[in-house]
Amino acid sequence: MRYSLKHVYIILLVVVVSLLVFIVQGLYQQETKYLKQVEFKRIDGYSEGTGNISEVQARINNQDTVRHNYTVQVSLNSVFFTDEIVEVMPDQPFTFKIVLPVEKQFSDLSVEEALHNVSFIIFRDDRPEPIDRIEYKFD
């Protein structure tokens, strides 16, 4: 009898420890899962051959239960550049990234204007107005 009680005690201890691990893991995941629908980021850097560059990105997290089409509209120096339509599934984030030379670029054949501003406007298929927008300025 005493022997079986000892076994029950060990099993219960294993169960309690397992539960504790699951609870801690769950709390940690909940913390990391709390994301905004659109997150913007700008990283400035340097590239050999290109000079100063800037990486501007928008990360879209579809928090709905169904898939949606998102449109990312990009303007460079206040001139329309592209509008990319992508289907984003729930729990499968999408990242739009553009890497741009910031300084004026020269070559024997052409000149590229310096970058003054970049703007992102994000639309979702079920809303007429933009869900988010941002403008980065370079001086």
């Binding site: 051959g49 290109t50 992508v86 289907e87 990242t95 739009f96 990234k97 553009i98 741009l100």
Partner: peptide, 16 residues
Amino acid sequence: GDGVAQLTFAPINLAR
């Protein structure tokens, strides 16, 4: 299966 994870516009690296 389906769905785009990342879309990038990268400039040419003239040096390389």
